[in-house]
């Protein structure tokens, strides 16, 4: 198991460098630079522009800039935002809980309903429910997130008035950020009204962000479950006189979950990418919205390191999933 972990860790190093190089290059490929954006519509005095660029260290050749960047990274310095002069790390940690809360809720939503729908569809294969679930999930998977978000807002918030349109909580409530997770913070305050309000704010973004993972998990669970239910050991389990629930969940789902688990890990990346759109639609004050604004402002340190942090997170999650995979599947664990 240890060598399994060590090998996985070894693979992370080149991935990490690849990401730094990619984000560094991509943001510089977009026309414009931070100084131009800051100056806005006014004509930029070339001399002032050059001075500002020199002050930011952006006049050096690209390889030198990259070396500077990596050198700072090696010291754990993520730099500071060109706009706010706040350290990138501080901004990230302030905003990240909002994204994490949303992503976590979306993953729970997708996981619970996706697994349930997938298992039932597999058990009732060919039924109306099966076709219905698979059709809806295909639609969900194909739907553009921003369109789906707007439709839900129009229906649920505008027409029916069930849920708030945007934001994390009504400005009426003044909640002291302790953990940064609104649901927990409102509970800590002990005000039932604010918790309910935070919860209502979460519903639509959770559904919008969770739709694609839900569809993927439901389809994956169904096909994996169908495959497993045909296995000989399911017949053995039935021949033991076990209850149908035990056969399906203990003997079937346990094995069917192995591929689904991988999908779960991959979906975390999708979730963070989807969060950028979802947060923009719902004015959710998380890192998605932060990054979009940083790209607009050519805020190089925020874009580079913000994406790097997210990428590290996705890598970390997949790493954890790999280990879980080893735990779930004894055949992998014992490979040397």
């Amino acid at each position: 198991m240890l060598s399994f972990i060590a090998r996985r860790l070894g693979l992370l190093i080149p991935t990490f460098f690849g990401i730094t190089l990619l984000t560094f290059a991509l943001i510089r490929l977009i026309p414009g630079d931070p100084v131009e954006v800051m100056m806005g519509e006014r004509r930029v005095d070339p001399e002032m522009h050059a001075q500002a660029m020199e002050r930011l260290g952006l006049n050096k050749p690209l390889p030198a800039q990259y070396m500077d960047y990596i050198g700072k990274l090696a010291q754990g310095d993520l730099g500071e935002s060109l706009r706010s002069r706040e350290s990138v790390w501080k901004e990230f940690t302030t905003l990240f809980p909002a994204t994490l809360e949303l992503a976590f809720c979306a993953l729970i939503f997708a996981g619970v309903f996706g697994l349930l729908a997938g298992v039932i569809a597999a058990l009732k294969r060919g039924s109306l429910f099966d076709h219905g679930v698979m059709g809806v999930s295909l639609a969900g998977y194909s739907m553009p997130i921003f369109w789906w978000g707007l439709i839900l807002i129009m229906f649920s918030s505008v027409s029916m008035g069930w849920t708030p349109v945007s934001g994390r909580i009504d400005p009426l409530y003044d909640v002291e950020p302790v953990t940064g997770f609104m649901l927990i913070d409102t509970l800590l305050v002990g005000d039932e009204g604010s918790f309910k309000d935070a919860f209502m704010h979460l519903i639509l973004p959770t559904i919008v962000l969770g739709t694609i993972p839900l569809a993927v998990i439901a389809r994956m669970t169904r096909s994996s479950m169908l495959e497993v239910l045909r296995e000989d050991y399911i017949r053995t389990a039935r021949a033991k006189g076990l209850s149908p629930a035990r056969v399906v969940f203990v003997h079937g789902l346990r094995n069917a979950l192995i591929p689904v688990l991988t999908v779960f890990g991959l979906q975390v990346g999708t979730l963070l990418a989807g969060a950028v759109l979802t947060e923009t639609i719902f004015s959710w004050p998380g890192i998605g919205k932060w990054l979009i604004e940083a790209i607009g402002a050519r805020d190089y340190p925020v874009v580079q390191n913000g994406i790097l942090l997210i990428a590290c997170l996705v890598i970390l999650v997949n790493f954890v999933v790999d280990i879980l995979y080893g735990l779930a599947n004894p055949r992998i664990r014992h490979q040397r």
């Binding site: 296995e231 000989d232 050991y233 017949r235 053995t236 389990a237 021949a239 033991k240 006189g241 076990l242 003997h251 346990r254 094995n255 779930a328 599947n329 004894p330 055949r331």
Partner: peptide, 18 residues
Amino acid sequence: GKDIAMVFQDPMTALNPS
């Protein structure tokens, strides 16, 4: 599973791998 029990053909697939 109690009074009537069965042994199947392919033992490598008849046991649950997990």
